[in-house]
Design a protein around this nucleic acid. Structure first.
Lengths: 203, 203
DNA sequence: ATCATATGTTGACATCGTGTCAACATATTA
DNA sequence: TAATATGTTGACACGATGTCAACATATGAT
């Protein structure tokens, strides 16, 4: 029995077939969007038998969900900058840059996120996957809020869990908005929502 | 030719058939959800011929979109309370009550909104319809922000269009959150996001 | 009252995407 | 080398959609 890197020939073949399908998927989804892209298209592109696809992925949604994983990793890196401000001004400055990074990173993958947004709505499986991403971001924000509350920089009457959700949603919504609406200025949006988040609308 | 209320017999028949379909739709969508509810089900419930449905509605989405209309009207009423505060405290108080009303109204129609949320993701037509609703709400908020800015109550460096969008999204997202998550307190959420919106997180 | 026409209704049918499955091919291993 | 495990395949059944030619009846002009 021949082996390469602890994988048997059969296993390698299986791995390759799987990869073929994922590659074909990431290409076809981008071309046709989530809804209009059919399994048949992906299968043809991947040059495998029809039934083969269903050996590796129970359905289109699961195949797509796996494609998302890779992109999410990159987004997380942006948010995982350490956050330990010692003054309000410092905190606000850091939040502004984090927001700007997040929006800019997303905007640079416009096409991909357009398809992701479509899929989130269409597929419960993808929706669930995205909800997990949201939760991770939100928890990270929640920690930051608790930190500045303990430092005495932020209002203590505010519930971190609620505000973290709200703040992340503001960011996410603005990302979707930017992706679909070219005529917005990223830094202006980042500045505005940061001000709202940190200082509020009223004097 | 017989007539009743300026409608010919044929027209009445057509009107009734249409209504039958809408009634059947609002019943079946609520039972099965948007995705799983099929035209065949609605048609059977309405007791009309299969093809008949397609005379009045080109597809399931359009039928559903028409059902939404009615609900949206009620939501708009909540938001159309006149807003002319003379002090910051008054403004904040009014915003809090508006938010609370909005969330409570939505929550009281939980099941309906669950289906609507599903449909928004699934159907571009419904999505578009909902986007119009968003725009109307947002424009109303934008006017309010301009007003308090002119009164010298609110920060002038903030761009109303951006903040109005953000604020409405916070409300909307919290509504979806409340609908799916029983264990949240409506008034607590209203209080928290109102504070964030008006006063910000930091001192 | 009659009848041509407009309006409304109908279900059989073609189409399309999905997911399954029994059969096949080849690698593995005893 | 033979039995078994692993991987591949496309024909098929299914379910939902939207169309269409035929049908039924109301309308309104003569």
């Amino acid at each position: 029995m021949e082996r390469t890197g602890d994988l048997t020939k059969k296993q390698q073949q299986a791995y390759q077939t799987r990869k073929k399908l994922l590659d074909a998927g990431s290409e076809m989804f981008l071309i046709h969007g989530f809804q209009k892209c059919t399994m048949t298209q992906i299968i043809k592109k991947a040059q495998v038998g029809y039934g083969t696809a269903y050996v590796y992925f129970p359905n289109k949604d699961t195949l797509f969900a796996e494609l998302i994983d890779h992109i999410v990793v990159e987004m997380k890196e942006v948010a995982n900058i350490p956050f330990q401000p010692t003054s309000t001004d410092e905190a606000i400055d850091q939040i502004y840059h984090q927001t700007l990074n997040f929006l800019t990173a997303g905007l640079s993958k416009k096409k991909v996120f357009l398809v992701i947004e479509e899929a989130i709505g269409l597929s419960p499986i993808v929706h669930q996957k995205w909800q997990n991403v949201r939760d991770e971001f939100t928890q990270s924000i929640e920690r930051d809020i608790r930190f500045v509350q303990e430092q005495g920089l932020a209002k203590k009457e505010i519930i971190p869990a609620i505000i973290a959700k709200s703040w992340f949603h503001m960011n996410e919504q603005m990302l979707w908005e930017l992706i679909k609406n070219e005529d917005f200025d990223v830094s202006e949006i980042a500045r505005n929502i940061t001000t709202l988040y940190t200082k509020g609308l009223y004097y």
